[in-house]
């Protein structure tokens, strides 16, 4: 199962049971209705189906996948469009305006 079957069984049972109790308390079901017994069973089935299906969430993995995603046909990586990086990880387009001044070049004295 891709989802959480134990959570599905417990919460499904509670969902069916409480749904039956709610319907009775709101006057929709009589106290001797067989639905009060059927609904918890249907809730368990629903919880198990949800756990087996597991349609929610991305299922993130910590390991890298073996198969790299296939490159769509007709497209190429344009290596030339990526500027080269220097040792600091910055692009090598010349000194940045944000670079700090070098030591010893101050004219304060």
């Amino acid at each position: 199962m891709k989802g959480r079957p134990i959570l599905g069984v417990i919460s499904g049972f509670l969902f069916g049971l409480l749904l039956g109790v709610t319907l009775f308390l709101f006057g929709a079901l009589p106290l001797n209705s067989p639905w009060l017994l059927v609904l918890p069973v249907l809730g368990i089935v629903l919880g198990l189906v949800m756990a087996a299906w597991a349609p929610f969430g991305g299922g993130q993995t910590d390991e890298p996948t073996q198969d790299a995603p296939a490159q769509p046909s007709g497209t190429t990586l344009e290596q030339d469009a990526i500027p080269p990086l220097d040792e600091g990880g910055r692009t090598f387009d010349g000194p940045s305006d944000a670079d700090p001044p070098e030591a010893g070049t101050s004219d304060d004295t």
């Binding site: 891709k2 989802g3 959480r4 919460s11 509670l14 756990a51 597991a54 929610f56 991305g58």
Partner: peptide, 19 residues
């Protein structure tokens, strides 16, 4: 409480992360 347990049912359908 029914609505809360419905959230639990939906939570059972969340994929488990693979370690």
């Amino acid at each position: 409480l029914t609505a809360l347990s419905a959230v639990g049912v939906a939570g059972a359908g969340v994929k488990r992360s693979v370690k």
